[in-house]
Design a protein around this nucleic acid. Structure first.
Lengths: 194, 194
DNA sequence: GTCTATACCTCGATAGAC
DNA sequence: GTCTATCGAGGTATAGAC
């Protein structure tokens, strides 16, 4: 498995990140060793340290990049009806969760294995994502098209519900993605009193 | 901190379990060492092995006992209206989650750190718990008092939503337990189309 | 039942050859 | 850029004294 010499820097970097993401998601950050990651990539342990300062930075980078991509990809239009925005958010969240289940899973499971500094940074990004949903609920209340007892709590509840998809969804399983979106749309619309 | 000799078997056993539960919940199973657990209890490492075969058994026992207590404590009455049963379930789940947040948190976070045999056992117990909720949704459909697009998916979604409480609830925080139950009741009733 | 001491292993990380 | 080799720390688990 272990190659002998030969430089492939352009591809090794992404491979390290991919392997780490996959293994961290499957077994948990603390349970995965740098040796396992190296083996998955097909490289020796020492080589990993050309691509990351240490194991902690590897995790923090995965989470940071994922959250930044998430925030950059989310497009909201405050001028539209809140219910439409809610459906768009739901579709966006589920689609992301099914396209990149490992990154999504990691981002809410491994916060506690970050150093305090890294945790604060990632938590702030996540907070911005939660705020994007809460803004929609607040707008819906103002419009009179939604009725939620507590927008903050409802936000947390809805995100927990949507993120749960990563726990049970299996590619090629009973339900395809459009069907999942349809079911969640009904649940979410009901929950916000539409 | 370390005592010198002296037998206190009756109390040490529970203390080991309590310390393990607390530390596993806080840092994750893989990130916690037997040394840390021993230090928390105030004994030496070797002593732990009078109370558990190994670290894995410690985790498996915590999850098994928790799930069995949960299943034993849940009282349902199929003769009652489904919406009442749903509210009872929701109250039961939230109450348990707030009374024993660490055990609840562990039971859905640490399945992957169980050996395949232990995982199968705990997953079966959890499945029974999920089935208890799904039975209520099915009854509600039959009664015509609920309308959910997919009872199995709705079950998973509702449990994910309710269990999310452990992620953000803080003792003495903004909301007391009754208020949390009230908010979730509205969300859940809406979600099931009541 | 608990302690002390330790065996044996794997970990994260680094140095230096190629 | 990657490999080999290795260091020191810390991991789980056990043996035997008290």
């Amino acid at each position: 498995m272990a190659r002998t010499q030969g430089s492939r820097a352009e591809i090794t970097g992404p491979l390290v990140r991919d392997a780490a993401r996959r293994l961290f998601a499957r077994h948990g950050y603390a349970a995965v060793s740098m040796r396992q990651i190296a083996a998955e990539v097909g490289v020796q342990v020492g080589t990993l340290y050309s691509y990351t300062a240490d194991k902690q930075a590897l995790l923090a980078d995965l989470l940071r990049v994922h959250m930044e991509e998430l925030l950059a990809a989310w497009r909201d239009d405050p001028a539209r009806p809140a219910l439409d925005r809610l459906e768009a958010f739901l579709r966006f969240h589920i689609q992301t969760s099914l396209e990149r289940p490992e990154a999504v899973f990691l981002s809410y499971m491994e916060l506690r294995n970050l150093t305090p500094e890294n945790r604060a940074e990632i938590a702030a990004l996540r907070r911005r994502y939660e705020d994007a949903l809460e803004a929609i609920l607040i707008a819906g209340e103002a419009e009179g098209t939604m009725a939620v007892p507590d927008t903050r709590l409802a936000t947390m509840a809805l995100i927990a519900m949507l993120t749960g998809v990563t726990n049970w969804y299996r590619e090629g399983g009973r339900l395809d993605q459009e069907r999942v979106v349809a079911v969640y749309r009904e649940l979410v619309r009901g929950a916000v009193g539409a």
